[in-house]
Design a protein around this nucleic acid. Structure first.
Lengths: 225, 225
DNA sequence: ACAAAATTTTAGACTAATCTAAAAATATAT
DNA sequence: ATATATTTTTAGATTAGTCTAAAATTTTGT
């Protein structure tokens, strides 16, 4: 209990606004998008936006959407930091699979103790990325910038390394597990089918696997140097 | 999220009812006691008791007090199990002092995931006691029975081992730290002052320390065999 | 034993977060 | 360009948990 300025719910809204804004390259987030991600109705979102705007956590232009203020962004980054650190804990220390951790981390991210976060970070040896490859904001609230590309945008025969995923659903992650596609593995697109846009991929320079266009769009990679 | 049957608040009431009932050797807990421990007013407690009784988690006789039903006790023991496991984690893995962990564990105890609790328990190597010496209920909801005695009830010159504390306030625990009184240390009461009932104690067979009657009443020990 | 004190419950109100239904604003399509 | 569709906001209601003030019950002291 360091300074419980915001409710669990308010923290959640700010976190979701941050992640959606990021996904839309800084563009405003709409009420309906928030309703979808908070599992509530648009009317409830409007109410909460009015409240968050009053407290100066968001820039809210009615009917136009919202962005975070500096204060709102710091709250969001704090929550995201805790979420991702706990995900590392769940996988590295407790042996959970990357497909099993999201719902638990959604709860743990709201635990309020600066000292706990600091000690957890040290215990985990100050990880820079979570088990899905997402970067972990530092204690000052600074999000490391990463520049991954979608596998679907990489030219044929370019060797790349698997760095992250842009979808976190258990179904997608389990699908990758079955094909042995993990963070850090080497990938090279050999061919894209004219018929269904599916990909033939050389995995770790050894085996050839096939993935759908849908999968290729959600694999984040960087050029192998 | 396994089965969030109860709210955070309801879980807290059940936990507190359990602990107070235990402290009173199974006697009913009063509304005012609950108000004190939940940091609310008696009126609020009455409302909540009506609700918990309706859901069959407590036996509630108006004006007489409450005890837990079997169902209520199982919920309470589950929360206490999580609280104490997390306390072990905070001390053993993150290096917190036993005086710093209560407020954090109060939050962590409501994290809802059977699998998490199971894996945490294994990670901690299935501890039977928390850092204050309190027993940890097992996964089936069975509380181990322990029989500690207050140091103040032990005859002079009887060697005992320090097993727990009956007060968990940071001030008390820090006071014990300063005197180097830890779980597992050996104690022998040499003399009780007629003047102020303070105790001369031989610590680990080596040094003599002095503690007040108030401290002696809150040290839980067992006979050294 | 019974009046006074203490405790507990009830009544009525408030806040946070949600909902449905209706109104207002914006976007779209011919 | 304007009617229609979509999105967003507002209005009014609901639930959980809390509060204060007043009423009911139990305990205590002489």
């Amino acid at each position: 209990m360091d300074n419980q300025l915001l409710s669990f719910t308010e923290e959640n809204y700010l976190k979701i606004i941050y992640l959606l804004t990021e996904r839309h390259n800084g563009n405003e987030v709409s009420t309906n998008q928030l309703a979808e991600h908070t599992q509530t109705k648009a009317a409830s979102v409007s109410d909460m936006l009015r409240k968050l705007a009053e407290k100066n956590y968001i820039n809210y232009r009615k009917y136009q959407g919202v962005t975070l203020t500096e204060a709102g962004e710091q709250i969001a980054l704090g929550v995201i930091r805790k979420h991702r650190l706990w995900e590392v804990f769940l996988v590295e220390k407790l042996g959970f699979g990357w497909d099993e951790i999201h719902d638990i981390a959604e709860q743990l991210e709201h635990i309020d103790s600066k000292e706990l976060t600091k000690r957890l970070d040290d215990f985990l040896e100050n990880p820079k990325f979570d088990p899905h490859g997402d970067p972990i904001p530092d204690a000052k609230g600074k999000m490391p910038s990463v520049s991954y590309q979608k596998l679907s945008e990489i030219p044929l025969n370019q060797s790349v390394v698997m760095m992250g995923v842009s979808v976190h659903s258990p179904a997608f992650l389990q699908h990758l597990d079955k094909q042995q596609i993990n963070l850090g593995c080497g990938l090279k697109v050999l061919e894209i089918s004219d018929f269904d846009k599916s990909y033939s991929i050389l995995l770790d320079g050894k085996t050839t696997i096939f993935v759908s266009n849908e999968v290729a769009k959600n694999l984040l990679v960087s050029i192998d140097e």
